[in-house]
C-alpha cells in the first residue's frame, strides 16, 4: 500500500515563527563575522601609522558607519541573549537530586556579560 510523502516546501523556514527566529539567530553570525573583519581592518590601519589610523577613525564617525553599527549591534545582542538562554540546556548542574534551575545558570551568564561589558568599557574608554 503506497504511503504519501508530503512535499517539503522551500519556504519551510518561513512556515513557522520559531523557524524564522531560528534563521535570524543563525544569521547574527554574519554580523559577528563582519565585525571581526572590521576589527582586523582596524588593527591593520593602526599598524600602518597615525595617518592611516586617523582615516579609520574618521570612517567610523561617518553616519553610515553608525547606522551599520546599530544594525549589527541589534543582531549581536540577539545572539548574546539567545546564546545565554540556551546555555542551561548544555550546562546542566546538579546538586544532589536537584538540578540548578535554568534561570540561575542563564542569569549567571547574563551577569557575566554585563560585568565584562562594564569592565571592558571602563578599560577602553576609561569612563
Amino acid at each position: 500500500m503506497k504511503s504519501y510523502r508530503r512535499p517539503v516546501p522551500n519556504t519551510l523556514w518561513l512556515s513557522r515563527r520559531p523557524y524564522i527566529l531560528f534563521i535570524i539567530r543563525e544569521l547574527t553570525a554574519v554580523f559577528v563575522g563582519a565585525y571581526c573583519v572590521l576589527l582586523l581592518f582596524f588593527i591593520y590601519k593602526l599598524g600602518k601609522g597615525l595617518e592611516a589610523y586617523q582615516g579609520m577613525l574618521d570612517a567610523l564617525k561617518s553616519p553610515l558607519s553608525i547606522i551599520l553599527h546599530l544594525i549589527a549591534l541589534a543582531f549581536a545582542i540577539y545572539h548574546s541573549v539567545t546564546w545565554f538562554n540556551l546555555t542551561p540546556k548544555i550546562m546542566v548542574l546538579q546538586i544532589g537530586e536537584e538540578r540548578v534551575p535554568a534561570f540561575l545558570i542563564a542569569g549567571a551568564n547574563f551577569a557575566a556579560w554585563l560585568g565584562l561589558s562594564v569592565i571592558l568599557a571602563w578599560v577602553i574608554i576609561g569612563v
Binding site: 553570525a29 559577528v32 553608525i66 553599527h69 548574546s80 574608554i125
Partner: peptide
C-alpha cells in the same frame, strides 16, 4: 562573541 562583541560595537560604533 556573546560576551564581548556587543560592548565593542557600542564602543566603536556609538561612543
Amino acid at each position: 562573541a556573546a560576551l564581548f562583541i556587543p560592548i565593542l560595537m557600542v564602543i566603536t560604533g556609538l561612543f
